[in-house]
Design a protein around this nucleic acid. Structure first.
Lengths: 326, 326
DNA sequence: TTCTATATACTCTGCGTGAGCATAAGGGCC
DNA sequence: GGCCCTTATGCTCACGCAGAGTATATAGAA
């Protein structure tokens, strides 16, 4: 096998971070602001010899670039065969670029962000993923675009494309599956409805593509963000990670709003509270928050003990049948 | 940022495959047989320049080493900071070794395996993960070992260790969570009950460690296999991946036996059939299998259409309360 | 005081799921 | 053929959770 080593390609491994927080019912992610005309980028940097572990390397890069110390971190996915960054002046220098992407969650309270770093609402990139005020115009527009894409294909393929669009975007009667955020982005990319698809192929996107498909990020970072959204939306259902995004104490409504912000759909208030209560996820602090605009709300605190009591504590998210606010 | 590139470490990226099949109610994984005294290894090889994609590289390595063409493949996890392989004569040659691990599923029917390759029952490595004939002696033995490990710690830590053991191995009343296979292995490793923990640290394991903790694999491959088991056990619940492991037609009992083999617990026969039926996962072929030992069983076929009908078709696995065969 | 907005408690109903009983239909043995 | 064993398959029952809605409590504002 030793002769195989000789053909081993030189590899650059990037560590890329999707850092998530929730402010004012808006889920945000940490980005580095671009220069003129550029695209925002996720915090990232190459794996270095002095990094003890992959996670340590990631934390170090995020801290260096944004001044933020991470708490909860988990690995997302490893991306290979990525498009070359636009500002890379040395084509062919690296045979290959890998990116190991991580998901990090931080409570929003008092997070200073340094340098070029800023918080960006993630629905800027994926406007169709926010259905909290009912299915917006995006969905129909995208479905129309996907239909046009299907039209360009010969018959057996055409039906398959239509089917796939219906499946991921939940057409007639098909429910909206919040966890399919990544599939939806990948479909749009494949259909050429995301400008990155054109840039990555070395072309300029047709002008009509750019309307209403959300904000592109640098290189493949929008895909990485979509991966993070899908993962997080799935995970809050069976692990109490939602509390990583909240301050020490919070009201039940705030907890619900965070769950809604992440999953992009409205939840049934009473049932949400019942679920949280009977799972034993929170406990009363004895204090109340008075500036609620109505009856004061009890301030709650996460019960860390649940993880040792219940097999899969989490916040079930099932959208109310009727979209929008109740 | 360009000066950072200079300190970028040289990286060797391995592609490692966990190839799973089910034969005779026994889940097996593809390994390369070791030399004298060595440990079996998963098929793996370094990422090379001529590999078009990561997956293509993986498929190529598996085919070269075992003669097997893979079907279903998905990425599992990327491992960093791995122990150095015992046969690596050049310490310090590579600054770092990464391994991108993949899960592959193949139907068992007529799979030729070439060279040093062989199928190994995965419960050889994790005997405690097979609870199909009731909780075996392993569980108690391991819990005892973990208790000893907890004893060696001072008080606040000791309670935490006991708690963790109870949580992952499901002590009193705590149910056995089949998906926690990885957590269980990691706990055993950390507690020094897996010999790899000693080898990786450069020591010889104490002699009493070796009894009944399952067969070690090369480097960190047992950890990778545990990752695959956990993933697969979770995935069959909401995606119809089980059918990747079966021949084109099969009886419902065979399907159930495959699900049981993967998850390591017995299932309730009637409810299993009801679930499969009402999910529309299978359809009748019209033929029957007569050598069942009793009433002939209908031969079924996977209905590929389900993926476009139901949001999350899969095979729910909940062990029958009473262990062992009903 | 009245209105409004929020918090919180409780009810009703249907479905999924765990468990078990009953019946069907083969083969082997007397 | 009758009996028994084995596996396949159909059906029922009970319980708990989840979706949806109604009702009540308690604050500030007009």
């Amino acid at each position: 096998m030793s002769q195989d080593r000789l053909t081993t390609s030189s590899v650059t491994v990037d560590l890329t971070a999707v850092v998530i927080a929730v402010t004012n019912e808006t889920p945000v992610t940490l980005v580095l602001k671009p220069g003129a005309g550029g695209r925002p980028a996720l915090p990232a940097g190459p794996l270095q010899a002095e990094h003890g572990t992959l996670q340590a390397g990631l934390r170090s890069w995020v801290e260096r670039q944004t001044g933020l110390r991470l708490g909860y971190v988990e690995q997302l996915y490893t991306f290979g065969d990525r498009p070359r960054p636009a500002d890379d002046p040395s084509p062919g220098h690296d045979d290959r670029r890998l990116s190991i992407a991580y998901l990090a969650l931080v409570p929003v309270a008092g997070v200073p962000v340094a340098g070029r770093a800023a918080w960006m609402p993630w629905y800027d990139c994926f406007p169709w993923e926010d259905e909290r005020s009912g299915a917006g115009p995006w969905r129909d527009r995208l479905l129309a675009g996907l239909d046009g894409w299907a039209e360009t294909a010969p018959d057996p393929l055409r039906a398959a494309r239509r089917e796939r669009a219906r499946l991921t975007f939940g057409g007639d009667a098909g429910g909206w599956d919040v966890e399919r955020a990544l599939e939806r982005y990948e479909l749009l990319y494949e259909a050429g409805l995301a400008p990155e698809a054109w840039w990555d192929a070395g072309h300029a996107p047709p002008s009509d593509v750019l309307a209403g498909v959300g904000r592109p990020l640098a290189i493949d970072h929008r895909r990485i963000l979509a991966t993070a959204i899908s993962r997080l939306r799935g995970k809050i259902k069976y692990r109490p990670v939602l509390f990583e995004l909240l301050p020490e104490t919070f009201t039940l409504l705030r907890l619900q709003r965070a769950a809604e912000a992440i999953s992009g759909v409205r939840l049934h208030k009473q049932n949400f509270r019942r679920l949280v209560a009977q799972q034993g996820l929170v406990e009363d602090t004895g204090r109340v928050e008075t500036d609620t605009g109505g009856r004061p709300a009890k301030l709650m605190r996460f019960r860390r003990e649940v993880v040792s009591e219940r097999p899969a504590p989490g916040v079930r998210v099932t959208a109310t049948r009727r979209g929008g606010y109740p």
